[in-house]
Structure formats: C-alpha cells, structure tokens
C-alpha cells in the first residue's frame, strides 16, 4: 500500500512539474516583455517581425511623437473646459461658443493628421509588407476609423465618410 501511495503522489507531482515547465517555457518571452520599460513597443517588434535597427528607429519615432500628442491633448482639454463653462452660462448659441467649437474641431483634425503622419512614418520604417499590414491595423484600431453614427432609427446605421 505504501508503494502504491508513493506512485499515486509521484504521478501527481510529475503532472504538476510538467504543467509548470511548459507554462513557464511558453510564457517566458511575454514575461520578459512585461518586465521591460515599453512592452507595447516590444510587442510591435514581435508582431511585425522588426529587425533591431527598425525597432530602434520606431522607438525614437514613438518617443518623439508622445510629448507632442500629450500637448495636443492638453490643449483640447483646455478648450473642452472653456466650452463647458461658456455653454453653462449661455442661453443661445453665441459667436464665442461657435468659435470654441470650431477651434476644437480644428485641433482634433490636427491631432488626427499628426497621428496619421506618425503612422505613415512608422510604416515606412518597417519592411514594405509589414508596413502595409501595420497601416491597415492602425486604421482599424484608432479613431481614424470613426464609430458608426446612429440617429436611433431602427437598423439605420451610417459611418462618417
């Protein structure tokens, strides 16, 4: 009976060891990604099969893009606050509100244009095939692809052109 118990428990330990071994081996690369400063860029490198030189260049583009993006966001937030304050005290559409709305729309358009410019730069840094794949992917994932419009009509959903 003692021998049988040793075999029983030994079998379970072997199963646990096999599980841990394959799990750790299978997730090792991803755990290394998460330990880095910019795991999302390392993911990009892996996903689009980038060489080290391409990755370094894309990392530089990314680091240069982020502060400008944050600054544009800050300015849009400022205008958002102004619009909220102005609208809350107004009783009709004033030239000031129209000006602020136009300014916000212009800044959003600038923001999208800069974003698209960044995507083109990144895609040009990649091998041509991967660059095309990257562009298709970012267009699907970002605000360049607008959310469907819906006026509440049943089954009537249109996209921004």
């Amino acid at each position: 009976m003692k021998r049988a118990l040793i075999i029983l428990i030994g079998g379970l330990l072997v199963a646990c060891a096999a599980y841990c071994l394959l799990y750790l081996a299978g997730t090792a690369a991803h755990r290394r990604l998460f330990a880095s400063q910019t795991p999302e860029l390392l993911w990009l490198k892996k996903e689009f099969n980038l060489s080290e030189a391409e990755f370094v260049r894309i990392e530089q583009l990314h680091q240069a893009y982020l502060p400008q993006c944050r600054e544009r966001c800050r300015r849009i937030e400022e205008i958002n606050d102004k619009i909220i304050k102005t609208v809350s005290t107004a009783t009709k559409l004033t030239p000031e509100i129209e000006r602020l709305l136009a300014e916000r729309a212009r800044m959003r358009a600038d923001c999208q244009a800069e974003m698209l410019k960044h995507f083109f730069e990144v895609s040009r840094t990649m091998p041509p095939e991967q660059g095309r794949r990257y562009l298709t992917w970012v267009q699907e994932q970002t605000c360049l692809r607008e959310v469907p419009m819906n006026h509440g009509d049943a089954g009537h959903v249109r996209r921004h052109e």
Binding site: V14, A15, Y19, C20, L22, H30, L33, F34, W43
Partner: peptide, 28 residues
C-alpha cells in the same frame, strides 16, 4: 500536465498580446 501547461500558456499569451496591442493603440 504537459497539455494543460501548453494550453494555459497559449491562452495567457494570446490574452497578453491583445492587452499589449491595446496598450500601443492607447499610447498613440
């Protein structure tokens, strides 16, 4: 044990890939 480890690692890495892709998109 080997199959369970492989399957779990695969499921987790797929989930992490989606999370990292989402993180990149949010950054830009």
């Amino acid at each position: 044990g080997l199959l369970a480890g492989h399957w779990h690692a695969r499921a987790d890495t797929t989930k992490w890939d989606k999370a990292l892709a989402s993180r990149y998109v949010q950054a830009v």
